[in-house]
């Protein structure tokens, strides 16, 4: 069946709300407005205002309330409009949700799912366009997911809700309109939330990406294929805990790697991945690991500037080409 990333996310939400009375969705404009990215459109009419709960503009308050509700026996799904706004709730996520299990000696746990939009590409400027998922991936106690395919958009919510610990789900804004075929059989989207996935096998270079970087990397791989360079595309899927084995296995095979991350380079998820490759595959490499990340500027508004600041398929292809040519 033809579907979109947005519709797949909505179908997963509907299924979760229908399956378990303890599940509810809350966030800014998730109800009457229909969700700022229209993911929750129609769910209010179906499930009512208690379970599709509009909140005031109180990110700290309602994320904290989500943690409390999870402690109290519910399975909340909290939507934060965009990752930039999640910084207002970072205290509750990092000092609260992530720490409670350990700090309480294992007595409490927080079965909470937080969904949010991330990333740039829609000319939304420096306060709606960043990629802070790497910051959350820094924190023990959290699980961080980045669905990049229709199947993952449809399938990741169920295991996230089944996870007894807080799970953050990052939806890249460029993916919401992604369309394609997704079989109606649940087996088509059933997935785990611990492993990375090879989206395109290849033997010349590994393009390691996640979220919005995955379609870019696949596009780059097509360009490279036309030039006789067979690139492998690895989709991280899970940003914490990282599936190091899949990454290392790919790089040991291809002997070259380009890490694609829409976050900035300094102190980033891409830096962590490069470090993992150095620790685990140094002697397997034929070339230094390359990175294609956002330029180190607050995201600008103007189209040419935003394009220049972001990872692009041609930048990824160029980085891969250079690695292959140099060895």
């Amino acid at each position: 069946m033809k579907t979109s990333y947005r519709d797949a996310l909505r179908a997963a939400l509907r299924e979760a709300l229908a399956a378990d009375a303890r599940v509810f969705l809350m966030g800014e404009d998730v109800g009457k407005y229909g969700g700022s990215y229209a993911v929750s459109k129609g769910l209010l009419a179906e499930f009512g205002p208690e379970r599709v709960r509009d909140t005031p503009l109180s990110e700290l308050g309602f994320v904290g309330a989500g943690i409390g509700a999870a402690l109290g026996g519910l399975h909340p799904i909290v939507e934060i409009m965009t990752v930039n706004f999640s910084l207002l709730a970072m205290d509750q996520i990092v000092n609260g949700a992530a720490a409670l299990r350990h700090m309480s000696g294992g007595q409490f746990h927080v079965p909470l799912v937080i969904r949010m939009a991330t990333g740039a590409g829609r000319q939304l400027g420096a306060q709606h366009s960043h990629s802070f998922e790497g910051w959350y991936a820094h924190v023990p106690g959290l699980r961080v997911l980045a669905p990049a395919t229709l199947a993952d958009a449809r399938g990741m919510l169920a295991p996230a809700l089944a996870c007894p610990d807080p799970v953050l789900l990052f939806e890249h804004v460029r993916l919401y309109n992604l369309e394609g075929e997704l079989a109606e059989n649940p087996e088509a989207w059933r997935c785990d939330i611990r492993s990375a996935a090879v989206r395109r096998p290849g033997d010349a270079v590994s393009l390691i990406a996640y979220g919005g970087g995955v379609p870019l990397s696949l596009e780059a791989a097509e360009t490279l294929a036309a030039e006789g360079i067979d690139a492998e595309v690895v989709d991280l899927r899970v940003l914490r805990p990282l599936d190091g084995e899949t990454l290392l296995a790919s790089v040991r095979r291809t002997r070259r790697a380009v890490v694609v991350d829409e976050g900035w380079k300094s102190g980033s998820l891409s830096a962590e991945i490069v470090a993992r490759l150095m620790e685990g595959a140094f002697y397997d490499l034929d070339a230094p690991v390359a990175r294609v990340c956002s330029e180190e500027v607050p995201m600008p508004y103007a189209r040419p500037l935003e394009d220049a600041a972001l990872p692009q398929a041609h930048k990824i292809a160029a980085a891969a080409r250079k690695l292959v040519a140099g060895t």
Partner: peptide, 23 residues
């Protein structure tokens, strides 16, 4: 629990209250 972020416990109490109501 003891929460050492000043004010950090208040939203938790709100959520616990919400859970009592919904359940």
């Amino acid at each position: 629990g003891g929460n050492a972020i000043v004010g950090g416990g208040l939203p938790l109490a709100v959520g616990l209250g919400l859970s009592a109501r919904m359940l």
